[in-house]
């Protein structure tokens, strides 16, 4: 594993790669949809009466957008990130120069960076709206928490979809299996209260953090927050390790 090469792969993927425009477009669409939600947040608040009791619910709205839309956007961006290269054979020119783990981590870093930046922009837009349009105080703490938690949450899905992309022999299979994976996670989450499977889904850890944005920060238990962050990091690490194992077993 070579950090320098990971950065080269990530940088190329984001700015010069064949999919860089596509990736940046997906990020842009995500930002745009989030902006639309915050722009029409008053209508949303009026539709959902419980939100009237929440002080500055705009971060909450944006976080719900990330929870629901985020996995779909990451699926669209990452399902064929690896399998496309293997299918066309372009990966051979890269793997003959760097190790496989650096390649995977470089790809992950590219996707993660794009979505982290997107989430940051969304958070800044939300803060600006909060400050200038809704005349609420600027909350730096909430902004930082929003960026950290949202990007970790999206990274869980990115690592999962990269794993599936590495296993898949072709793009079509990768798309179907990524959709199946998402479906399994959603079903596992909604199965029931006594269901332990929900702990295996990133959705659970994402939803657990909603309390952070629905009230003032000090009421939320920070132990719960750190626990959720820890499990999301574990989730990422497991899937990245599996991806690394999977690519080492592939005949390129």
């Amino acid at each position: 594993m070579n950090l320098q090469k990971i950065i080269v792969v990530a940088e190329d993927e984001m700015f010069n790669g064949s999919k860089s425009k596509y990736l940046l477009t997906v990020g842009g669409i995500f930002i745009f949809l989030s902006w639309m939600m915050i722009h029409y947040s008053n209508s949303i608040i009026s539709l959902l009466p419980f939100m009237n009791n929440i002080n500055a619910p705009h971060y909450l709205i944006l976080y719900i957008v990330v929870l629901i839309l985020g996995p779909l956007m990451t699926l669209i961006a990452s399902y064929d990130f690896i399998c496309n290269e293997i299918q066309t054979g372009s990966i051979r020119y890269i793997i003959s120069k760097i190790d496989r783990t650096s390649f995977i981590l470089g790809k992950f870093l590219a996707l993660s960076s794009v979505f982290t930046v997107a989430v940051f922009i969304v958070a800044v837009i939300g803060s600006l709206y909060n400050l200038f349009i809704f005349n609420n105080a600027f909350e730096l703490g909430k902004l930082i928490l929003f960026v950290v938690i949202s990007s970790l949450y999206l990274n869980c899905f990115i690592s999962g979809f990269l794993f599936i992309s590495t296993l898949s022999p072709e793009n079509k299979t990768a798309l179907i299996m990524s959709g199946v994976f998402l479906g399994i996670l959603i079903f596992a989450l909604f199965k029931g209260n006594d269901n332990f499977l929900k702990y295996l889904t990133p959705y659970f850890y994402g939803i657990s953090n909603i309390g952070l944005f629905s009230g003032s920060t000090h009421k939320f238990e920070f132990i719960e927050l750190f626990k959720n962050i820890f499990f999301m990091i574990i989730y990422n690490s497991v899937f990245l390790s599996l991806t690394s194992i999977a690519i080492k077993r592939r005949d390129l």
Binding site: G17, S18, T88, G89, S90, R92, Y93, S96
Partner: peptide, 9 residues
């Protein structure tokens, strides 16, 4: 390496 049957972007 110059591989066989490999494509570029």
């Amino acid at each position: 390496l110059v591989p066989q049957d490999s494509d570029f972007y």
